[in-house]
Design a protein around this nucleic acid. Sequence first.
DNA 1: CAGTGAGCGAGCTTCCGCTTGACTT
Length: 767
Amino acid sequence: MQENLVIVESPAKAKTIEKFLGKSYMVKSSFGHIRDLAKKGLGINVDNDFEPIYEIPDDKRKVVDELARLAREAKTVWLASDEDREGEAIAWHLAKVLDLPIERTKRIVFHEITQRAILAAIETPRTIDMNLVNAQQARRVLDRLVGFELSPVLWKKVRPALSAGRVQSVAVRLIVERERDIIAFKSVAQYRVVAQFHAAGDEEATLFKATLSKAFDSREEAEQFLQECIGERFVVSKAEEKPVQRYAAPPFTTSTLQQEAGRKLGMSVSQIMSVAQKLYEQGLITYMRTDSVNLSQMAITQCKNEVTRLFGAKYSYPHNFKTKSKGAQEAHEAIRPSYIERHEIEGTAAEKRLYDLIWKRTVASQMVPAELDRTQVVINLQNRAEQFVATGEVVRFDGFMRLYSESVDEDAQNEGEGGLLPKMEIGDELVYTTITASERYTQAPTRYNEAALVKRLEELGIGRPSTYAPTITTIINRGYVVKQNRDGQKRQTEQLTLSGAKLSSKMVSESYGKEKNRLAPTDIGMVVNDYLESQFASIMDYHFTANVEKEFDRVAEGDITWTKMIGEFYDPFHNLVDAAIGTQNEKGYQSARVLGVDPKTGLIVKARIGRYGPMVELEGKDGEKGQFASLKKGQLIESITLEEALELFALPRNLGELDGEPLMVGIGKFGPYVRHGKTFASLAKGDDPYTVTRERAEALLKESTDKQKSASTPLRTFAEDAQMVIKTGVYGPYIAYNGKNYRLPRGAKVEALTYEECQKIVAKAKK
DNA sequence: CAGTGAGCGAGCTTCCGCTTGACTT
C-alpha cells in the first residue's frame, strides 16, 4: 500500500513525476475528465437552477474504479490536475466521485514538469477553488445549451443530423465570409514599372532594381511613361540607411506549432498533433497542447549553455516571453524539447523533422536579435512627378537567424525586397539599362488553410489548444466545409520593355489561382451559416466567446454565481430558439438564386439546394415540369455562372440507339452512369459523362454485365450443404449462408476452405 | 425539398474540452 496517491491528467506526465517523488508516492492519471453531462438529453435541469446531471462515461468506468480503490487505500490523496479552469473541475469531479472532502483534500499545481516545481508544489498545497470550478460548470453548461438547442432547430428547419455550436459555427462563418470576399472580388490589371539602374558614367557599376511608386491603370499611360523616360534624367533624392533589429520568435504554442509545421513540413493540423503526441509520450518534448510561451528556468539555463557552446556567448540571450493570446490559461510550458542538449532523436521521418523544428525554435528563442541595415533610395525624374524607390536589406549580424527563421504565409509575402544596394548619395545621377512595365492582376483573397484558420480562431479567443484539430474535423464531417485543391489557370499578360531607346512588347503567360489544401464552404455550409446568422446573430458574433469569457472570469473571481450568469444568458437565448422554431417562413435554404435566362429556350435558370443536394433548375413554363441537374464538385450555388449551369443540363445525354433502346449517360445517386434499357453501369474514375464516347459506354456496359454474371455464379459450393456458398463481392470473396453474409478470415484461401472450416466461420461470427 | 438506378419505417442525429488507445471494411 502507498502512503500518497497523486492524480494528474496525463499518463505520460504521471510517469515523469513519479521519478521526481520519493518511494512513498504513487502517481496515477485520470486521462482527462472523468465525468460529463449526461449523454442522452440535455443533461441539465433547466427548471432547477440549471442543475447539471453528471455521469461517468462507460469508457471511464475502469479508470475511475481503479482510482477509487487506490484512494481508499492511500493515506493522502493529492489532486494534481492542470492549473486552469478545466483542471480545477477535474479535481472537483475526482473529489466528488472518490468521496474526498472538498474542504480538506490537498490540491497542488505546477506549470512545468521539473523536480523543483513538483517539490515546491507538494510543500504548498491548497484546497479546491470552487469559484474556478463553477466557472468551468458555467462554460460546460453554456456550450451544451447552445449546441443542444441550436442543432435541433437545424434538423427541423434545414436538414437532419446537422450541428451548431459556439466554436464550430463561428469557424464555418469565417470560411463562408472569406469565400464571399473571393466571389465579390474583381481582379483588375495594372501596369507596374520596375527599372534597373546603375551609377551614371560607370558601365561596370552594380545594377540594382527600383520600383515606380505609382502603377498605371492603362496600357496607354504605361507606354507614354516609358516613352518619356527616353532621355530623362534620374537623380537620387534620398538615400537612407538605418539599422534595424529583428527579434527571434517565442517558443511554440499549439497554434504556432500548427502554423509553422504546416508551412515548413507540409503537415496537416491533426498529423502534427499526433506526431507531437508520440514525441511527448517518449518524454522527448513537453506537453503539446498549450497556449503558453513560458519556458522553465531550467530550460532557459540549458539553452544558454547550449547556445554558448555552439555559437559563443555573444549569441546567447536568456529571457522569457509573455503570452499575448486572448483567453490563454497557461497551465503548461511552451512546447520545447525536454532536454535541450539533445539535438537529434531516433524515430520516423516525421518525428525527427518535427523534433528538429521544435528544438531550433526553442534554442533560437534564446538567442540575440539579428542586426540589419535597411536602406532606402528614392530616385526623382526631372520631367515627371513619379519616383522610383529601391529598398535593400543587409544582415550585419545574424544572431538567432544563424539557427532558425520563421516562415511567412504565402499571401503575406511581399516581393521586390532587394539585397545589398550600392552606396549612393543625394544628387547622384543614375542610368537605366531597362525599364519594364508589367501587366499585373490584383489577387483575390486566399482561402484559409487549416493553420490559418486556427490562427484566426486563436486571435478571437475561440476554442482551445485541445480542440483546434477536432473542430476542423467536425466542420468537414458535417459537410459544411471541404478541404480542396484547385488547379491554377493560365492567362496572358503583357510586358512593355524599354531598353535604351527601344520600346518592345511581349506576351508572358502566368498561372494564378492554384491552391492546395484550402478550406472552402459547401452550399449547405453557407445555407446553415446564413440561417444561424439571421436567427441567432448574438451567438454568431465573433466576440460572443470573448464576452462570455469575461463573465466566466467574474464567476471565477467570485463576483457572480454561475447559475445567475447562465440564467441571464439563457432566457433571451431560449426565446430566440422558440421564435426560430415557431416561424413558418419558408425554410432557410429554399430561396433560389436566379442565374438568368437560357438563350435557347427562354426559360429561367435557377440554382438552389434540393433534396439530393445543390442543383440547377430550368424552370418549366405554366406549371410544366422543369429540368434539373446536380452541381459538380467545387461549384457553389452562390458563384455558379449561367454558362456553367447550362452545361450541366447536357445530361442525361443520348448516345444513340442500341438494339432499339437509347444508350443514355447521366449522373445518378451513385455517380455518373451509362444506362441501356434497365441495365446500368458506373463510369470509371477517368471518364467524363459530358464527353464519354459511345464506344466507351458500350464497353463499360459489357464489362458490367460480365461482372454481374460472374458475381451471381458462386466461386465454391459444398456437397454437404447447398446453403453454404462462397461468392465474390465488392470487398472480395465472402461466405453466404442461409441468407446472411460472412467475412473470410485474413489470409484464408478460397480454393482450400473445407465445409467444416466454413461452418466454424459462420458459428464464430454469430457470437 | 427534383425524380430516380431500390427501399419499410422507426428512432436518432447534436455541444466543447480534458485525455488516450481501440480499431479499421
